[in-house]
Simulated assay, not measured.
Amino acid sequence: MKTPEKRAFKARLFGEFARIGKALSSPHRLQLIEVLSQGERTVEQLAEDVGAPVANVSQHLQVLKTAMLVSVRREGLYAHYSLADPGVFRVWQALRDLGQARLSEVDAVVSEYFGDRSKMDAVDAGELRRRLGDVIVLDVRPRLEYEAGHIRGARSVPFDELADRLRELPPNVEIVAYCRGPYCVFADEAVAALRAKGYRALRLSEGYPDWRQRGFPSESGAEPG
């Protein structure tokens, strides 16, 4: 192959790869990917979750769809979106972790919102797996996300229900609360609320998609009545 042909080949090839980067270059689309990593959503559900107009969310989804990062399933009048492949979450996970490692601004933003998180003990997924059965695992995400997939044996207690359901939690067993990911506020808020009531509580430093990505025990469906 001649040099000009090689260059043209590389330009076209890397141009295709760059489509992924372009699709990921919006903070709004990254947020949609994080939400979709929890499970399938309609445009309307996504718009409510991220607090954006349906029209804007739809436009962002079309960009992700053109880059083959999301799939769509139509049912009646509704379009249900999901991540096209587990690799999409892995790319977001790698981008998230690289940003945490390389960008001091990430720590600054997190500290500004959460304060000193070192005061709130955390366990990682590996440690929690070893302790399954010895702790109560609370899924504090919305119930829809729990039903789409959760840590095996976890209890569904959405954060907005926690205050009314404390009597369901034995006071002498350690509790680990988890959420969507390392920057989801529900787990931090749940741990703070539990500790204020005298419970021994920790947060999972990762989220359910990270747990699932590692092949740790998961299941789906509603919590047994």
Score class of each variant (00 low, 15 high):
Leu103Cys: 12
Lys6Ala: 12
Ser111Gln: 13
Lys6Trp: 11
Ala148Lys: 15
Gly115Asn: 11
Ile33Glu: 00
Val35Thr: 14
Glu48Met: 07
His60Met: 10
Asp107Tyr: 03
Tyr178Met: 05
Asp164Glu: 13
Val135Phe: 00
Gly21Arg: 08
Arg19His: 05
Val72Gln: 14
Tyr178Gly: 00
Arg143Gln: 09
Phe14Asn: 05
Ala222Leu: 13
Ala190Met: 05
Gln38Phe: 13
Tyr78Glu: 15
Gly126Tyr: 09
Gln213Glu: 14
Leu77Arg: 15
Glu147Phe: 10
Ser111Tyr: 03
Val57Met: 08
Asp164Thr: 06
Leu64Cys: 08
Arg130His: 07
Ala47Tyr: 12
Val185Gln: 05
Cys184Ser: 14
Gly51Cys: 09
Asp49Cys: 10
Gly153Met: 11
Lys6Asn: 08
Arg200Phe: 06
Tyr199Asp: 04
Ala67Gly: 08
Ser58Leu: 01
Trp92Ser: 00
Ala193Cys: 04
Pro86Arg: 08
Ile136Val: 14
Leu83Gln: 06
Val191Glu: 01
Asp139Arg: 02
Tyr78Thr: 15
Asp210Lys: 01
Ser218Val: 06
Asp121Asn: 02
Leu138Tyr: 00
Leu61Val: 01
Pro217Leu: 12
Val137Gly: 03
Tyr183Ala: 09
Val110Trp: 03
Asp188Gln: 07
Leu144Trp: 11
Asp121Phe: 04
Arg12Leu: 13
Lys2Asp: 15
Arg7Gly: 02
Leu98Ala: 10
Lys119Pro: 00
Ala196Pro: 05
Ala154Met: 12
Val157Thr: 11
Glu168Phe: 04
Glu161Asp: 03
Pro224Ala: 12
Ala47Leu: 03
Lys119Tyr: 03
Glu5Asp: 12
Ser220Glu: 14
Gly39Leu: 10
Tyr81Lys: 03
Gly225Asp: 14
Ala193Ser: 12
Val110Met: 09
Ser104Asn: 05
Lys2Asn: 14
Ala193Phe: 07
Ala101Tyr: 04
Ala122Ile: 03
Cys184Asn: 10
Val135Glu: 04
Arg90Tyr: 04
Glu223Trp: 15
Leu138Trp: 07
Gly87Phe: 09
Ala187Ser: 15
Leu36Ile: 02
Val123Asn: 02
Gly181Trp: 14
Asp121Leu: 05
Leu98Phe: 11
Arg165Met: 06
His80Thr: 11
Gly221Thr: 11
Tyr113Phe: 13
Leu202Asp: 03
Glu112Ile: 11
Ile33Pro: 09
Ile151Lys: 04
Ile151Cys: 08
Gly15Cys: 10
Ala94Asp: 00
His150Cys: 00
Ala201Pro: 08
Glu75Ile: 14
Ala84Ile: 01
Ser205Val: 05
Asp160Asn: 10
Tyr183Arg: 01
Glu5Val: 15
Tyr178Trp: 10
Ala84His: 07
Ala23Lys: 08
